[in-house]
Write a protein that binds this DNA or RNA. Structure first.
Lengths: 231, 231
DNA sequence: AATGGCATACTAGTATGCAAGTTGCCGCGA
DNA sequence: TCGCGGCAACTTGCATACTAGTATGCCATT
């Protein structure tokens, strides 16, 4: 690399990642396939995925940064317990940011935005059956992301995706009860209604109610799976 | 690692890091010692610090995740330009979270907390001379961190430290004018006063005013150093 | 002289070997 | 039988060799 002072940085382009290892491990931890406290090793994971230790090592480091793994030098790497404090903080941060975001969305929403939200709601209703849980989950996320986009703050949702990670681990511990999907969609409908009505106060209140529902479920799951947790 | 289902994860203990490389590079980028667009290479940095490429590589990856570096495979690694969009998002997130946090702090503050804040203010006043800029900066951070702690949400400040990174890059571009330090300390005083008075509304408003001051300075600096930026 | 192609040098990505440290098992002794 | 000491096997941390891909500058050709 020359030291030319006018050298310009190339366009972004995320590295061509052979880091499928990262995605696979993240999913395994999030879904509970490998459980908190369980130990994994660079060597074994490398062998399992047919790669060398180096990319595995990078994946480990990254997952440790995100709070999924706990690397203890010279000892081993372990799936981190779900920390109740981290869950609570995630809830606080999420509520704070999303309430403000949805308020902005209600102030700025245009007809096309409302139409987009309505389309998402329709899609969401179409995948409410229990066997389409992953699709339901994805559309849930998409709705929140769309609200952030409408608010002009898409990056806020990007941040929340990272912050929410500990929350999602809890959600995965238990599939939800029968009326759960309908309740979620109904609450989303309320939010969209208030956004469509350009009612910031109502939108914020609807979002707060929605998140309280989600958080209550998280707390319930946490109580019934306390062995996976750490104070 | 055994597969014993009851294996418990060891205590945390961050790895014994020879990753002073990370700290050094982060400081160099933040301070502008190496400028946006400039290219660095694993090999050269490794040689410079007398270590191998492996730890350098980990430091690079981490810094890239934080938005300081941009790794282009088979081409090189470059100091990322400061993205104005990211700066704006940082401001939004910081304002949203800190206003809520300071409100909580005002509701929960006890006498000892107020005393602690007052001590910080006194220390802050003692380092207002321009040649003690780094101490001033550290105490600024400490005050905000303390407010988060009082609010019962220390993790929120931890998150903000990461989010603020792009903002701090801008702040480092320019040392501030003569009255700057006094203005900051004065605004901090106002915040602490409202917290001490258990006045959440007033505390939030004081915090908002304070952040607007900081953000205005950031915008000013950004305008006068546009060549370091990217839309 | 301008241009196109090629060789070279440099990059990050990956694999692998070695070092240092910890854990836990196993055998020996009381 | 119980306790203790040492060894062996495992772990991650680090260094280095090798691979593949890119940018760049030189040279031949037009």
């Amino acid at each position: 690399m020359t030291d030319s002072p006018t050298s310009s940085a190339p366009t972004d382009i995320r590295g061509p990642r052979l880091h499928g290892v990262y995605d696979a491990l993240r999913a395994a931890v999030l879904s509970g396939e490998i459980r908190p406290g369980e130990g994994i090793s660079e060597t074994r994971v490398a062998a399992r995925y047919g790669v060398s230790r180096t990319p595995v090592r990078e994946a480990f480091r990254r997952l440790a940064d995100e709070g999924f793994l706990r690397i203890v030098p010279q000892v081993g790497t372990f799936v981190a317990p779900i920390q109740l404090g981290a869950v609570s903080d995630s809830q606080f941060i999420r509520e704070t940011l999303e309430c403000r975001t949805v308020r902005l969305a209600a102030e700025r929403a245009e007809a096309a935005d409302v139409a987009s939200l309505t389309r998402l709601l329709d899609s969401h209703r179409a995948v409410m059956s229990p066997d389409r849980h992953s699709e339901f989950f994805a559309l849930d996320e998409a709705t929140h992301a769309e609200l952030a986009r409408i608010a002009g703050r898409p990056a806020v949702w990007d941040l929340l995706v990272a912050v929410k990670a500990q929350l999602d681990r809890v959600r995965f511990l238990s599939l939800h009860s029968e009326g759960w999907a309908a309740k979620i969609v109904g609450e989303h409908q309320s939010i969209v209604d208030r956004v469509a009505a350009r009612d910031p106060d109502g939108a914020e209140e609807a979002m707060r109610a929605h998140l309280r529902t989600v958080f209550a479920a998280v707390d319930e799951i946490a109580r019934t799976n306390s062995h996976f947790f750490e104070t």
